[in-house]
Amino acid sequence: MDPTSSSLRWRILRQALINRSDSQTEVEIKRVSRKATQGFNLIPCRQVVVDSCSEEDSREACVCYTIPIPSSPELYLTFFYENFICRQRVDNCSDLNDFEISNRHNIDNTGLVCQWPSEEVLAYFCMSQPDRFRGKRVIELGSGYGLAGLVIAATTQASQVVISDGNPQVVNYIKRNIESNSMAFSDTSVKAMELHWNQHELSELTNMFDIIVASDCTFFKEFHKDLASLIKVLLKANETSEAFFFSPKRGDSLDKFLKEIEDIGLNYVLTEKYDEQVWKRHETLAKGDESWPSYDKNHCYPLLIQITN
């Protein structure tokens, strides 16, 4: 009998915790894992070999993103990454300290796992519509390593971009990535921030942002109410301010988040086909593609949610 999806997911966790791979089930695990080797492949990237490779940074990789816009700068992001092995890191391993930090701060650990595909879609969408962001104050929530925020800062002439995450480990990486790419931002002010969605003292941020962006932030239902409240607090109280969220449906998790958005008095528009290039890539993956063997629309294809006052 073939292993069930649930049993294979437990094997993924087991392998990560004991730093051991099981070649007999590797194919099955790739079939159920939601991680994608190349995602939607909208922004070309390559691994960069860094000479100063030490034992302390053996779990890191530097990736160069080539923005597909003429005269745009390349962006260099340092990752605590599982998919790159040039620095002798054990593939798909984990550290129990990462989970301890997540529990201490009441956050999830997904920001350290990889660059999730919805983040790439968010970055691609934003750089394709620079007029929306020009001269605006922008904040990215749950940013992970900050690809979308960095792309916005490098391509849209936003006045300010704040790249935030609740995980202090991730925020340290964001700071490093901002510093590494500082020459790409022109006059845009860019900074990192540790921001928890349930923070109550946010007076300095209240109604401060024209645009909020986020990707893959609606999966964990226990954070929905706090996230909806935070959007309400951060957005400027006018008709032109808006939030752009990209999230797959993932069962009923997105629907439940949208219910919280309605309950707090915000409005939203849900769009499935928002960009021709993203849609074409989705159709290719849905037909079967070895670069993403476990692709499933419900769990992988990000919908666009536009949220307004």
Rank of each mutant, 00 (worst) to 15 (best):
S247P: 06
G265W: 08
E55A: 11
K236M: 13
G144C: 05
Q169D: 09
T110Y: 09
Y65L: 09
F125K: 01
S71P: 00
Q169W: 02
K287Y: 03
I163P: 01
G39Q: 03
V49E: 08
E28N: 11
S58E: 13
H200I: 10
A16R: 14
L285S: 08
R11I: 05
V48L: 15
V190A: 04
R34Q: 11
V113L: 13
L42N: 07
R87G: 00
I101M: 08
T188N: 01
E239R: 11
G111Q: 05
F219R: 03
Y145M: 13
P117T: 00
A184Q: 03
N267C: 12
I18G: 00
K256T: 10
S291P: 00
G146D: 06
F245A: 01
Y124R: 05
T240G: 03
W279H: 13
G149I: 02
N267S: 15
K259I: 13
C86F: 11
E74N: 15
L205S: 05
E55K: 09
S52N: 15
G39D: 02
L77C: 06
L230H: 03
Q115C: 11
W116F: 02
P73L: 01
R11M: 11
S21T: 12
I18E: 11
F245W: 06
C217P: 02
L150T: 06
M183I: 07
N238D: 15
H299E: 14
D216E: 14
L141V: 02
E100C: 13
Y65C: 03
D210R: 07
V113F: 04
N181S: 07
L13V: 15
R176H: 12
R281L: 04
L258M: 10
T206R: 15
L235C: 05
W197E: 06
P130G: 08
K225L: 10
Y145K: 09
A192E: 13
M208K: 14
C217M: 09
S54T: 15
Q24R: 12
E140L: 05
Y173L: 15
Q169G: 06
C114G: 00
P130H: 09
I178R: 05
D210N: 13
E222Q: 14
I152D: 02
D226V: 02
N172P: 00
D91Q: 13
F185T: 04
N97F: 09
T206K: 15
N309T: 11
N19G: 11
T156S: 14
R11W: 10
N167R: 02
L304D: 02
S253R: 09
V190Q: 04
C217K: 01
V48F: 09
S241W: 04
H200E: 15
G265M: 08
D22Q: 01
D22S: 09
R132P: 00
R89S: 10
N97L: 09
N97G: 06
N109S: 14
S229I: 02
E204R: 11
F40D: 01
F40I: 04
I107R: 05
E260D: 14
A243I: 08
F209G: 03
S94T: 12
R9Q: 13
Y145G: 08
F223H: 11
W197S: 06
I29C: 10
Y76F: 15
D2V: 10
A123S: 13
N92T: 03
M183G: 09
K191L: 07
C45Y: 08
E283K: 14
